[in-house]
Structure formats: structure tokens, C-alpha cells
């Protein structure tokens, strides 16, 4: 039980967060709610990457002093990758909101089935 708590529980939690977003994208009918679910999914992936960079007893990757060993600093690579991913996700959210404003302007609605009905009419 303790092995499960220390080893897998944190991965399970972020798997659940990812699945919440996945279910939200599939099951919701409103485009705005789909976008929010997509952002939840994105956060789960980002935190999963950051988890893989952790080291027990390591500090943040800014070097102080002259003599240091590798084990004292956590892995800087996931931080560098996810830093850009967060900023890119913010700007893609902006593009999605702009597209939704256009859809609302054209169809007068953001519900998916309503839009499909009006497209096929």
C-alpha cells in the first residue's frame, strides 16, 4: 500500500485529470466547454512532464557556488520544454476564442448539434 502511495498515486491523479479533459471534449456539446476541457488536458500533460524531471533532494536548476554535483539540481530539460508549451497554449487559446466569436457571429449559437443542423440545411 505504501509502495502504491509513493510510486503510482501521483501518476494516477494526473491520469484522472487528463481523463476529465478527454471526457469533457467528447461529451460536451458546447464549444466553449470543449475549449475549457482541452485546457484541463493540457495542464495535465504539462504537470506530467514536470514530474519526470524531479529528483529527491534536488533544488531548482540555478547554479550557486563553484563546486556542485549533478544530483543537487533537478532536470532542467522538462522545465525548458514546458515553459514554451505554456505560452504557446495561451496563444492557441486566443485563436480558438477568436474562431468561436466568428462562429457565434455566423450561426448565432455555440452548440455543436445546432451548428451541424444549420450547416446541412
Amino acid at each position: 500500500m505504501l509502495d502504491f502511495l509513493t510510486n503510482s498515486l501521483i501518476y494516477w491523479l494526473f491520469a484522472i485529470l487528463f481523463l476529465l479533459g478527454f471526457f469533457g471534449i467528447l461529451a460536451n456539446n458546447n464549444f466553449m466547454k470543449k475549449l475549457m476541457a482541452m485546457n484541463i488536458m493540457q495542464v495535465a500533460v504539462i504537470i506530467f512532464f514536470l514530474l519526470l524531471g524531479q529528483k529527491l533532494g534536488g533544488t531548482l536548476p540555478v547554479i550557486w557556488g563553484t563546486d556542485y554535483v549533478v544530483e543537487h539540481y533537478i532536470n532542467p530539460l522538462p522545465h525548458a520544454l514546458m515553459l514554451t508549451a505554456i505560452v504557446v497554449s495561451l496563444s492557441t487559446t486566443g485563436v480558438a476564442l477568436a474562431l468561436m466569436m466568428r462562429i457565434q457571429d455566423h450561426y448565432g449559437d455555440l452548440e455543436e448539434d445546432e451548428i451541424l443542423r444549420r450547416m446541412n440545411k
Partner: peptide
């Protein structure tokens, strides 16, 4: 979590 010898921590970093 926090493993110093995990593949992510021994390869490039």
C-alpha cells in the same frame, strides 16, 4: 517520483 536514476534524469541532463 524523485528517482535520480530514472531514464529522464540520466540521459542528456
Amino acid at each position: 517520483i524523485g528517482d535520480k536514476d530514472s531514464p529522464a534524469n540520466v540521459h542528456v541532463s
